[in-house]
Computed example of a mutant assay.
Amino acid sequence: MKVLVTGATGYIGHQLALKLADQNYEVHALLRNLNSTKIPRHDNIIPFRGNICAYDTVQKAIKQCDYVFHTAAFTDLKYHKIDKFYNTNVVGTKNVLEASLRENVKKVVYTSTLSTFGPALYKTPITEEQPRLESYANDYELTKSMSEEVVAEYVEKGVFCTILSPTRVYGPGLKTYSNGVNAIISKILHDKVLFVPSKLDVEANYVFIDDVVNAELLALKNGKAGEKYIIGGENSDYKTLFSYIKNISKSKISIFQINYDLVKNCIAFINNVNAAFGKSFLLTPQVLDSLFTNRSASSQKAVSTLNYRITPLKTGLKQTINYLSKYNDHG
């Protein structure tokens, strides 16, 4: 069996490509840079130089593929224009689905995000039935929602496509911009002091990377065309999450809270100063708000329909802490 994986140098796509290759799939990996150090290496993985924004390169990579896993996305919330978000997340998705239609691909699994649902209602986890009640907080959310509309259009045209909506992913794997949970774990492991905004009661859902990769394969087997499945783990507020990480790692870090509005205003000021000198900052007010938005969620639909299984948060954190400790020890 031949499969196309987009985003194979990303956090989820990298792990997924290796998992598929280990299961004897011939994996076509669409890559912008054939010299990237993040390319998954395996005898069953064949690199194709290209870009989902360029239809002809997608068409070449998808030739004779039975299935497609579309995980590529532009996620950098520091970027202030919509063009890269739109081209990658919307146009790129349309290119993948159009090529899938023309090549008679049997099934497509599209990796979206929980953030398309918007914030969770008070004390009510997000489910697939929740309508979005607030405006889009950033261009990433907007364009990922637009890409889901593209999926719906191509399902009507006959493409068998299932949508997965992962929550906040963590666990062993590549260090990428979008993997903020691992970054927090690393700071608690190695820093002596951590200053955090004073919203530690904000609750979100955290999913172990292995569960997401397994969900991709389960969606291929059990997913229904046009259906959306939330792929998550346990819900936790920051206070509980930090406590788990500290206890498991035996970290002695001191965590101090700073007024949220003060933090946000300082970040805005730093960004304005950096912008004047043509520089960027790791955090923006938009990124901060996205991190401190309630996003508790339920994966019951995936559990009952896909046979999805959830790794307990403490178990996943222990494996992640062990991995990050070794990773940092070896540079």
Rank of each mutant, 00 (worst) to 15 (best):
T6Q: 02
Q15N: 15
L16T: 02
L18V: 12
L20S: 03
L31G: 04
T37L: 10
P40C: 02
N44H: 12
G50L: 02
G50M: 01
C53V: 14
C53T: 15
D56E: 15
D56P: 02
T57M: 01
Q59I: 08
K60Q: 13
I62A: 07
K63I: 11
V68D: 01
H70G: 05
T71C: 15
T71Q: 08
T71R: 03
A73E: 02
A73V: 08
A73D: 04
T75K: 02
D76I: 06
Y79C: 09
K81R: 12
D83Y: 09
V91C: 12
G92Q: 04
T93G: 10
N95M: 10
V96M: 02
A99V: 03
L101H: 08
T111Q: 08
G118W: 01
L121S: 11
K123M: 12
K123A: 14
T124V: 14
T124D: 12
P125S: 12
T127R: 09
P131A: 10
L133V: 13
E134Q: 15
E134S: 14
A137K: 13
D139V: 03
Y140L: 12
T143N: 07
S145Q: 05
S147K: 02
S147Y: 01
E149V: 04
V151Q: 08
E153A: 14
E153Y: 13
P166F: 02
P166Q: 07
Y170E: 01
G171S: 07
G171I: 03
L174A: 12
T176F: 06
G180V: 04
I184V: 15
I184Y: 09
L189Y: 07
V193E: 13
V196Y: 14
P197K: 10
Y206D: 02
V207K: 00
D210E: 15
D211G: 01
D211I: 00
E216S: 03
A219W: 00
L220E: 01
K221M: 11
K221D: 10
N222C: 05
A225Q: 05
G226A: 11
G226N: 07
K239M: 14
L241S: 10
L241H: 04
F242C: 05
Y244N: 02
K246Q: 14
N247W: 05
S251D: 04
S251V: 09
S251T: 03
S254G: 07
S254L: 14
F256G: 04
Q257H: 08
N259H: 13
N265G: 09
A268D: 15
A275K: 13
A275L: 09
A275S: 13
A276L: 15
F277Q: 09
L283M: 13
L288F: 04
L288Q: 07
L291F: 14
T293R: 06
N294I: 06
R295D: 03
S298I: 08
S298Q: 04
Q300Y: 09
R309A: 08
I310L: 03
P312T: 08
G316W: 01
L324Q: 08
D329W: 06
